[in-house]
């Protein structure tokens, strides 16, 4: 009997799931970074605080949040699964191997950058999301919490390094997702340009926040 292929079970299918969830998370990044731009408005956080409260009270946003969590979990779970599957494909490695001569660094360390992004995500959710949504911000407004957090050079360095890692992950991930979804070669150049938004502009947008508050605090 011929073996059968399912999208769920095949190696390509697994990558397709990673690609679709990855692109969905990219979409979320756009929304997230756009909202955060309110921090730079120079109104001592009035607009930002209203934005956070409106999000908290919106049933739509709270429902999308659940989908978002599912997106993260599936992307992470499938990433680990494919990684484990792939590791078994070469039990004995080369004594001498020079992968840097045939492939880019970001493409080879997707699992590591992915794991570090998870680490960042946990810290990040603890600092902001859990405080704003559940445990309370200790009398500070949401804007003041952000401002106070980014006063710490240690936290800022951690944050900026994490954004660089995210940039690395997206450098490979964004275009790779389209390849996995079977993009036709004529679109490749266009995708490479759109990818710049994701691996360069968005991480810079996030990293601008600690820099902004550090400068603001010092002046």
């Amino acid at each position: 009997m011929r073996p059968t292929v399912t999208v769920y079970g095949s190696s390509i299918g697994q990558k397709i799931i990673s690609a679709i969830t990855g692109l969905f998370l990219c979409l979320f990044l756009v929304v997230h970074v756009s909202g955060n731009l309110l921090l730079f408005k120079g109104d001592e956080g009035k607009a930002f605080n209203e934005y956070v409260i409106a999000n908290t009270n919106s049933l739509l946003i709270r429902s999308i949040e659940i989908v978002l969590f599912a997106g993260f979990l599936i992307h992470i779970f499938w990433g680990i699964r494919v990684w484990l599957f792939n590791r078994r494909a070469r039990p004995l490695d080369y004594v001498e191997n020079r992968p840097s001569e045939n492939s880019s660094l970001p493409s080879r360390i997707m699992f590591i950058t992915g794991m570090l992004v998870i680490l960042f995500l946990v810290v990040h959710l603890r600092t902001f999301w859990i405080a704003m949504r559940f445990t309370g911000t200790g009398g500070l407004s949401d804007y003041e919490l952000v401002q106070a957090t980014f006063q710490s050079p240690l936290y800022d360095s951690f944050y900026i390094v994490c954004m660089a890692i995210l940039a690395y992950h997206l450098r490979q991930g964004f275009q790779s997702a389209f390849q996995t979804l079977g993009l036709r070669p004529i679109w490749r150049r266009a995708i490479d340009w759109v990818a710049v938004i994701f691996w360069l502009i968005i991480p810079i947008g996030f990293a601008a926040m600690p820099v902004y508050f550090l400068i603001k605090g010092a002046s």
């Binding site: 292929v5 079970g9 992968p99 996995t180």
Partner: peptide, 17 residues
């Protein structure tokens, strides 16, 4: 594709090596 998976080749990470 089914045979490729059955032979235990890994999945593609698009490193283009």
């Amino acid at each position: 594709v089914a045979q490729m998976d059955a032979e235990k080749f890994g999945a593609c990470s698009n490193t283009y090596a």
